[in-house]
Design a protein around this nucleic acid. Structure first.
Length: 120
DNA sequence: GCAATGACTGGTA
DNA sequence: TTACCAGCCATTG
């Protein structure tokens, strides 16, 4: 990461814009971790929380909803491989472009966690 | 301090 | 596989 300014490596600007001027260590860690997920791989909300020594998967979701716009949010999926609720369509395009292992289902698609699941 | 809320999970039907 | 339910966790009013 070169050296960049605090601005270009902290996707917290959206967070701040939302009203939270002081970013939590948790939110910072979540966004930072998401940026580290390699293309073609994914992590579940629960796994992220676990990697941070927490179990607040729902909080991870909240962080993504507010500051996820500046990070590869599509690499964060449900524990069963389903993409973020309400973003299935957009996520599909990214997965398709990155070659993320997917598997079709009667009602849509799902990420093949068995192969795509990643952990730092 | 309690109740509601949310990009969640795991178990059961 | 999908649908529903109870549990969990931090934030918000």
């Amino acid at each position: 990461m070169s050296h960049g300014t605090a601005d270009d490596r902290w996707p917290l600007r959206a967070y701040e814009a939302a009203g939270a001027f002081e970013a939590d260590a948790f939110a910072e860690a979540v966004l930072d971790l998401v940026e580290q997920i390699p293309a073609g791989r994914v992590m579940s909300y629960g796994s992220i929380a676990a990697a941070l020594g927490s179990r607040a998967s729902r909080q991870v979701g909240k962080v993504m909803a507010h500051g996820g716009a500046d990070v590869p949010w599509w690499r964060v999926v449900h524990a069963d491989g389903r993409p973020a609720d309400g973003h299935e369509r957009s996520a599909r395009e990214h997965f398709d472009a990155e070659g993320t292992p997917l598997r079709e289902t009667p009602s849509g698609y799902r990420v093949a966690m068995r192969q795509a699941d990643w952990t730092p």
